[in-house]
Write a protein that binds this DNA or RNA. Structure first.
Ligand SMILES: [Zn+2]
Ligand SMILES: [Zn+2]
Ligand SMILES: [Zn+2]
Ligand SMILES: [Zn+2]
Lengths: 160, 160
DNA sequence: TTTCGAAAGTTATAGAATAACGTCTCTCCA
DNA sequence: TGGAGAGACGTTATTCTATAACTTTCGAAA
């Protein structure tokens, strides 16, 4: 039972640097253009392990960065990041979080702490397989999965 | 491999009657008030096996039923139905669907056909258990699960 | 009959996402 | 060199989803 980095104090700037570097490398390899705006949005999404709303990103771009930005600016950047597997959308929160395993084709499972709002990305092939199998069992061919779990993370559990 | 009723031609009025009768019985038993409005909203949600948006419900109430209704009217009814386990919310669609197993405390898994938009509710304790176990594995206590799978249902698969 | 509380009506607003069109700046090739 | 075309981004407007806050209605209990 390893507590995930996300809900422990850690050198988060390292997370951010790694994520940005990985993104650069990945886009290079795939011929995708990681523009300054897209990189900045990715950085903002990675500013913490908490899913971030599109309008929060918009706020930072407008107020802190001083960039003239309207919703489509943010959503286009997010669409790019989603398509390239650099972020995930959390449907139950209408928010976005950086992907921990960029490059792999995958659909994570997310553990969302109702106390500290941290999202932990799991990658348990067994879960995906169990779901696909159950779907196949009724003749349904699964193409995409949304698995989001709300509860209490290890830290918040201890604190309580 | 049993194809679920939901994506076969069937006597759907039977689904509706059963759902409404079950709801009456359940509310009676639990001392919850299934008012005319709430019952009507439940009926509308059950009008098909496709998840229905709150504003679609609102449209019917206003135009067909001639009832003066604003969003809160619908959302309050839906909240009641959710709290009493009579409908589920599909986060990835912002829509609502009737519950197939009212009364049981459960969180379904949903298979959503991208072609005919039918939602099939599964109740596989094994999946829920696998997810909870994976969460416990990193010290996370799962309290609620959202499992939504998009793909092709048996009928649409055949048709293609 | 009065009183109280739940349900529903009403008005306004917040929050999330997209449509449609214009502008800018590259790269590519004549 | 100098367009042509494509992609990224800006801009404006609108749609869709959801909730806040206050008022009115109505039925059951005291
Ligand atoms: Zn991921
Ligand atoms: Zn926490
Ligand atoms: Zn039916
Ligand atoms: Zn289908």
């Amino acid at each position: 039972m390893k507590t995930p980095l996300a809900c422990l104090p850690h050198d988060h700037s390292h997370c951010v640097h790694t994520a940005l570097a990985d993104a650069e490398a990945l886009c290079e390899r795939q011929g995708a253009r990681l523009t300054a705006l897209r990189k900045r949005v990715l950085e903002l999404v990675w500013q913490s392990h908490k899913p971030l709303g599109a309008y929060d990103i918009l706020g930072v771009l407008s107020e802190t960065d001083g960039r003239r930005a309207a919703p489509p600016t943010v959503y286009r950047a997010l669409d790019f990041l989603l398509e390239n597997g650099l972020v995930h959308r959390i449907a139950s929160l209408n928010a976005f979080v950086g992907c921990n395993h960029p490059g792999d084709v995958h659909q994570g499972q997310f553990l969302i702490c109702r106390s500290c709002h941290t999202a932990i990305e799991l990658q348990q092939p067994a879960i995906g397989a169990a779901i696909s199998a159950a779907a196949e069992g009724v003749g349904f061919s699964a193409e995409g999965q949304t698995v989001e779990v709300v509860g209490l993370c290890a830290s918040c559990r201890e604190a309580a």
